[in-house]
Amino acid sequence: VTVHVNRYTYHFDNPEEAEKFAREMAKRLNMTVEIHGNTLKVE
Rank of each mutant, 00 (worst) to 15 (best):
Arg7Ser: 13
Glu19Gly: 05
His36Glu: 10
Lys27Ala: 13
Glu16Val: 12
Asn38Gln: 06
His4Arg: 11
Thr32Met: 10
Pro15Val: 14
Thr39Val: 14
Asn14Arg: 06
Val5Gly: 03
Thr32Gln: 10
Asp13Trp: 09
Met25Asp: 00
Phe21Ile: 01
Thr2Glu: 07
Lys20Met: 11
Lys20Arg: 12
Arg28Asp: 05
Asn38Cys: 13
Lys41Cys: 15
Glu34Ser: 15
His4Trp: 07
Glu19Trp: 15
Glu34Met: 14
Ala22Glu: 00
Val3Gln: 01
Gly37Cys: 10
Leu29Cys: 15
Thr2Gln: 08
Met25Ser: 03
Asn30His: 11
Pro15Gln: 12
Asn38Arg: 05
Pro15Met: 15
Glu24Ser: 10
Tyr8His: 13
Ile35Thr: 07
Glu24Ala: 13
Glu24Gly: 07
Leu40Ala: 04
Glu17Arg: 06
Leu29Phe: 12
Lys27Ser: 11
Met25His: 03
Ile35Gly: 05
Arg23Ile: 08
Glu43His: 14
Ala18Pro: 00
Glu16Asn: 08
Val42Tyr: 03
Lys27Trp: 08
Leu29Trp: 08
Glu16Ile: 12
Tyr10Glu: 01
Thr32Ala: 08
Glu24Gln: 11
Lys20Tyr: 09
Asn6Tyr: 13
Gly37Glu: 07
Leu40Asp: 04
Asn38Lys: 06
Leu40Thr: 04
Lys27Val: 10
Val1Met: 11
Ala18Phe: 02
Glu16Ala: 12
His4Ile: 15
His36Ala: 09
Val5Tyr: 08
Glu19Ser: 07
Glu34Cys: 14
Arg23Asp: 05
Val5Arg: 02
Thr9Glu: 07
Lys41Ala: 07
Arg28Cys: 14
Thr39Tyr: 10
Arg7Cys: 14
Lys41Ser: 12
Val1Ser: 06
His11Thr: 09
Arg28Glu: 07
Met31Pro: 01
Met25Tyr: 05
His36Pro: 01
Tyr8Gly: 05
Asn38Ser: 08
Asn30Met: 06
Ala18Trp: 02
Met31Asn: 03
Met31Leu: 12
Asn30Cys: 13
Thr39Asn: 10
Lys27Ile: 12
Tyr10Gln: 02
Glu24Leu: 12
Leu29Ala: 04
Ala18Ile: 01
Val5Asn: 02
Lys20Val: 11
Glu17Gly: 03
Glu19Thr: 09
Val3Leu: 02
Thr9His: 09
Asn6Thr: 07
Tyr10Trp: 10
Arg7Asp: 12
Met25Phe: 05
Thr32Glu: 06
Thr2Met: 08
Gly37Asn: 06
Arg7Lys: 13
Ala26Val: 02
Glu16Ser: 10
Asn6Pro: 03
Val3Trp: 00
Thr2Arg: 06
Asn14Trp: 05
Val1Leu: 07
Thr39Trp: 07
Arg7Tyr: 10
Asp13Ala: 10
Lys20Asn: 09
Ile35Met: 09
Leu29Ile: 03
Met25Gly: 00
Val1Cys: 14
Val1Phe: 15
Asn6Lys: 08
Glu16Phe: 11
Tyr8Gln: 13
Arg7Trp: 10
Ala26Glu: 03
Glu19Ala: 09
Thr32Ser: 09
Phe21Gln: 00
His4Cys: 15
Lys27Asn: 11
Thr39Glu: 10
Arg28Leu: 13
Thr9Gly: 03
Thr2Val: 12
Gly37Ala: 05
Thr9Cys: 13
Phe21Lys: 00
Asn30Tyr: 04
Asn38Glu: 05
Met25Val: 12
Arg23Gly: 04
Met25Pro: 00
Tyr8Pro: 00
Ala22Ile: 04
Lys20Glu: 11
Val42His: 04
Val3Cys: 03
His4Glu: 10
Val33Ala: 02
Thr2His: 13
Asn6Leu: 14
Leu40Val: 13
Val33Cys: 03
